[in-house]
Design a protein around this nucleic acid. Sequence first.
DNA 1: TTGAAAGCGCTACCAC
DNA 2: GTGGTAGCGCTTTCAA
Lengths: 343, 343
Amino acid sequence: MNLKTLAEKLGLSQTTVSRALNGYPEVSEATRLRVQDAAVRFNYRPNSRAKGLATGRSMVVAQIVPGSSEHEMVNPIFGDFVGGATEALARFGYDMMISRVLEDDEGKIYRELHARGAVDAVILQGPSVEDPRIPLLNEIGMPYIVHGRSTGITAPYSWVDVNNKRSFRRATQFLTDLGHRRIALINGLEYMDFAQRRRSGYQEALDAAGIAADPALMCSADMTEGYGYRETRRLLHLADPPTAILSASMLAAIGIRRAIQESGLTMGRDVSVITHDDDLSYLRNGDDIPIFTATRASVRAAGAILAEQLVALISAPESGPVHHMIEAELVVGGSTGPARRRT
Amino acid sequence: MNLKTLAEKLGLSQTTVSRALNGYPEVSEATRLRVQDAAVRFNYRPNSRAKGLATGRSMVVAQIVPGSSEHEMVNPIFGDFVGGATEALARFGYDMMISRVLEDDEGKIYRELHARGAVDAVILQGPSVEDPRIPLLNEIGMPYIVHGRSTGITAPYSWVDVNNKRSFRRATQFLTDLGHRRIALINGLEYMDFAQRRRSGYQEALDAAGIAADPALMCSADMTEGYGYRETRRLLHLADPPTAILSASMLAAIGIRRAIQESGLTMGRDVSVITHDDDLSYLRNGDDIPIFTATRASVRAAGAILAEQLVALISAPESGPVHHMIEAELVVGGSTGPARRRT
DNA sequence: TTGAAAGCGCTACCAC
DNA sequence: GTGGTAGCGCTTTCAA
């Protein structure tokens, strides 16, 4: 069923039917109702491609799946973010498209998506410090929002970010308040902007507590289970091991817990772990592990927020770049006993 | 840059330029090269929507994000599957679109995607037993491939599936061979077809070993961390607890490990755990936990395989439905000592 | 308040 | 081997 046949069935012109369906004011209420009714009856849906051709907009937003040859795994919370964004976009009539790059040249994909007119805007994931994709997108003239920020970029750009610095400062301070002085940070790749911000929050809290940061207690790599495991083993074998570990990844946390357990230590008593991204709802009562967590549900919410900002940006580009900071709620799971093995 | 202006620049007709670019034979090599060169120089990309309108194909495949109001979390391996499928589809010129449903009426989405001409085919995730979406898609006439199978559907349909039954039979047999007789199964929702197949493989192996299945050792629910944790606690508090646990989810496994650890038991010595979907590369040497695992990389590969089959299906629908069984390689991590707490 | 018709950018048929 | 042209299904002036 297309516009033409629908119009014929109604004995109206395509123009009138189109107007009635798209909420134009110059249609009488009577015909509008008649048209809408018929559209439902015949299960009419305007053809996306034809509509796109005529309007010059595709009503599609693209997202590049992170994952080059180095880190093949897709972050497990990626699905949550996409789910939240997709759902929110759908409410505004947008579809979500996923692209994936093999080479390092992610810019090529953006250029092509734009030239093909395949998408109206893109979501930029995992920005690095001075991310080259930002000036590229500015040059191309494609609307976009960065999920995160990019230190060193002077040109204006739109972003939606979680306040990682504050989260990690608070988490670290939570530990120093309990008396911990040997606090390890198992961080992500530090060319990633968010990882730098987390580290800087950690650093600030240490400074505030008068603790000198120990390079032996900090590490940075692609967040995997094995990485969390190996680093935790290394940390626990130090002459002066940490009494607490700060992590930022669900996957790394699995390895961390495992390494602690293997060492015959008890989490929460011997080593406190603060982590991210877990479903820790079942740990809230009587547990002995103090845990801060940005839940997976909050990741979905972040996706939805970004989507809404993106729609706003597309609709009113003249308003300039949009910025939105998400102050993630930190949830404490488990009881919050003091550090046992203080130095 | 569009066809028209490119043709003008070359002093050729749109027809010729189009033919040269799309590999039609009736163009002279000389002009073809000239055209291709110009296309690259001017960074010309045919407009997707216009091309789609003209050809009647959208070159887009859709995937519905699983996750209704009941299970809000997206399966963490979802991203891996999508990544693999997206990459493979791109090689054939297809884009991947993600949709998400709020209501239970997933069928409505398929109907709409089809009516709008937004996609050429869809990927059906998480089929239940007698999944109603299969007859629906048959009726609509939209090409699709089911990721998994659906017992009870008599109509022909295309699928790509992992041999879950065999995997779980082998995993269970692996345990019975080691002397285990109390083997628990922490299963997914059993209206899901794959969960039923896993259970049936488990059952077969028990039967072969002459072990009567104990309902107290089996449970079924949405695979979450908390679920794995609670069920493992329950199991370990039984008068006659299991010496081994079979799980099938990365998330549930986190909870399982935690519950075991809290009980003061040691995984591998007191309780063997067999699980799925983990990055367990770091457990392969000298570890005391026997673990079978379908790695996340294999999930990506499955996505790629499904994508290839889907392209084949779209290209040659007259060949009838396609079927592809993936025999997942089972990886043993850790050493494989016998059960210690046999009954 | 309604309708005719000119595109949007491309493919594909038919003629040369 | 090359080019003219009629659509694909919709929106959007411009007229009535």
